[in-house]
Amino acid sequence: MESATRFGHVVMLGPTNAGKSTLLNRVIGQKVSIVSPKPQTTRNSISGILTEEGAQAVFLDTPGLHRQKRGIAPLLLRSAYAALTRADVVLVLLDGAQYARRLEGLKNDLLPIVRVLKDSPVPVVVALNKADVVREKARMLPVLAAVGEALPGAELFPVSALTGLGVKELLAALFARLPEGPHQFDPDEVSTAPVRFLASEIVREKVFLALGEELPYSTAVTVEDWDEESKPGLVKIQASILVGRESHKPMVIGKGGERIKDIGQKARIDIEEMLGTKVFLELWVKVRPNWADDPALLRDLGLGE
C-alpha cells in the first residue's frame, strides 16, 4: 500500500536576526531569501518550495518579530502575522547560541511568539539555531527547558542553518506534521515569488552588505524594466535603489561610484545563477522621501494591502 502524499505551508517565526533566511536558503538549496548580518532585513513573507519523496512544503520566511512601533516596523509585523493564517505547521527559529551564552532576553523574545500562537491548533516545531558554535552542550539545557516551558508540546531541535547540522532531522519532523494532500507545484519549482521580486531582493541584500553600519534602513529596491526579448541569452534589468534622504544617496553610490559598481557586480552574479543566463544589470539611486507612506509602492514591494 502506497503511503499518502503530504502538502502544506510551514511558516517560519522568530526574533530578528535568528537566521530564518539562512535556514530557508539551506533547506531549499539555493538563495530565495535575503541574508544579512543586520537585523530586520526580511520584509516580506518569502516563500521557498521543497519537494521530497511523498511530501512538498512551502516555507514562508517572515519578518522578525520585535516591539518597534516606528517606520515600517508595523508593516513588517502585519506581514508576519498574516502569514500565520496559511500555516499548517509553525517553525519557530531562535538563536540558540545567543541564549546559551546568556539566558536573559529569551523570555522577552518568546513573548510575541507565545502571544501569537496562544490557543492555535497548528503544530509547532522549534529550531535552536547556531548549535554548532556552542562548545559546552550542557549550556543548551536551560535554553531547552525555558523554550519547552513557554511552548509546551513543541518538539525542539538544535540545528545549524550555516553547516546543516540537525537540518535533516528537523525537516523529517516538519514533513511528518503536514496534512495529507496532493502536491501543488512542480518538483523543480523552488519559490512562489516572481523572479523580478527575487532579483530586487538580491540587489537589496548587496546594498545591506555593502553599507554595513552606514545602512539607512529606509532603503528599498524596485525593478523598473525587465527585458528578455532584445537579445537572446541576455536579460537586461534596470533597478532603482530608493533612499529616504538626499544624504543617503552618496552613501550608496560611494566615492567615484565604486560602491554601487560593487553592489551591481555582486548582485549580477547571484541573479545570473538564479536565472541560469547572462544578465546586464543597471542600477540607479533615487531619493524617495517617505516611500513607506506610499500605498502603491508598498503594494509593489509586497507590503501593502
Score class of each variant (00 low, 15 high):
8 G>R: 06
17 N>Y: 05
18 A>S: 15
22 T>F: 08
28 I>T: 07
33 S>Q: 01
35 V>R: 02
36 S>W: 07
39 P>G: 02
40 Q>T: 06
44 N>W: 00
49 I>L: 09
57 A>S: 15
59 F>C: 02
59 F>G: 10
63 P>S: 11
67 R>D: 12
72 I>S: 13
75 L>P: 00
86 R>Y: 11
89 V>L: 07
91 L>V: 09
93 L>P: 00
94 L>N: 02
95 D>G: 11
98 Q>W: 08
100 A>E: 02
100 A>Y: 04
104 E>Q: 14
107 K>P: 00
110 L>N: 01
112 P>S: 06
113 I>G: 00
113 I>T: 03
120 S>D: 05
123 P>A: 12
124 V>H: 02
124 V>I: 15
125 V>P: 00
129 N>E: 09
132 D>F: 11
133 V>R: 01
133 V>M: 01
134 V>F: 09
135 R>S: 11
136 E>K: 15
137 K>A: 11
138 A>N: 13
144 L>P: 00
152 P>E: 13
155 E>K: 15
155 E>R: 15
158 P>G: 09
165 L>M: 15
168 K>S: 13
170 L>A: 12
177 R>D: 08
181 G>M: 04
194 P>N: 00
195 V>S: 11
198 L>M: 14
204 R>F: 04
206 K>V: 08
208 F>E: 10
212 G>P: 01
213 E>N: 06
221 V>K: 05
229 E>G: 05
231 K>Y: 08
232 P>D: 05
233 G>R: 07
237 I>C: 09
241 I>M: 04
244 G>E: 12
247 S>M: 06
249 K>F: 07
250 P>T: 01
255 K>T: 14
260 I>H: 02
261 K>P: 12
265 Q>R: 15
266 K>N: 15
268 R>M: 04
274 M>Y: 06
276 G>S: 06
280 F>K: 12
282 E>R: 14
283 L>P: 08
285 V>C: 08
288 R>Q: 12
295 P>F: 13
300 D>M: 06
302 G>F: 04
304 G>F: 01
305 E>D: 14
